[in-house]
Design a protein around this nucleic acid. Sequence first.
DNA 1: ACTCACGTAACAATGAAAGTTTCATGTCTT
DNA 2: AAGACATGAAACTTTCATTGTTACGTGAGT
Lengths: 156, 156
Amino acid sequence: MARDLRMSRMLHVLIHMDRHVGRATSEQIAQMISTNAVVVRRMMAGLRERGIVSSEKGHGGGWQLACPLAEISLRDVYEAVGHPPLFNIGPQADPSPCLVEQAVDARLDATLAEAEARLLAQFAAITVEEVAQDFERRFADSGHRVPFPWHGATGE
Amino acid sequence: MARDLRMSRMLHVLIHMDRHVGRATSEQIAQMISTNAVVVRRMMAGLRERGIVSSEKGHGGGWQLACPLAEISLRDVYEAVGHPPLFNIGPQADPSPCLVEQAVDARLDATLAEAEARLLAQFAAITVEEVAQDFERRFADSGHRVPFPWHGATGE
DNA sequence: ACTCACGTAACAATGAAAGTTTCATGTCTT
DNA sequence: AAGACATGAAACTTTCATTGTTACGTGAGT
């Protein structure tokens, strides 16, 4: 696939759960983000381990937020979905005996590591609540049109 | 595959060409970086368009540096290999009608765009010559062992 | 002519994320 | 206790981008 969508999708889900649905089953969440319930469970498992959401089995079960959005940073979400590799470029993983390649890899790794640290710091400084407020601004500016028309579902 | 290796591999090649081989055929370069001659031509084509290297056909032909390493930045190389996507994470490409998703995507895109700009600025500030000097430091520190043992070739 | 080397198109292999199927386990309702 | 509902988890398939490979055309030198 193109790139790792988990972080983006999870943010989407967390805001919906806080602002609109409260509790939701994997199946319902899957429809929000146009995917499969099993994919949802895979992603949510990491969030549960970190206490961001909780799950309950059986009749009436499903997923629920376990803490306020203001206490969740984008970095928390990034880590929770398994901290996938940030970059699409870079040297190969295994080290080489060639000193030229070693020098190139070291420079590139150092530069990317610095960029990664800065980006993660940015993520740590943004809460999911802030993004939820971004959404509410968009909602207000749109004249309160239907805010989350997932799959053309008009009523439901 | 794991990630895009072109930038790393091209840096490797450029330094070898400047410091060790001068002119080289696609086949020879392919051996340096353990790949195929066609892959090399694909990568080098972008560099030629930007005047970083030149190629000559026929007997005695091959590739040659067209300017000093001090005048080539890592960003030049990045652009020359086709500016592949920097990040492995992010929202999906196509826009969504869901205002929540729009807000999430906008935040994420903005944050990544800022990180990308900073990283590219870093790349622009590093010349290939600097990396070549990194190599020479490593070479000196190693007590002048065989610096580029590609494929266990002892002599040749 | 013949060989060497790049230029290019077309196709196969590889690897990671996402999608899917299947079954087990736990929970609520009746 | 039986049945429906929902998560948990393993195994497999699909998809997509990069890389690897084959094949053929073109230009340059001997």
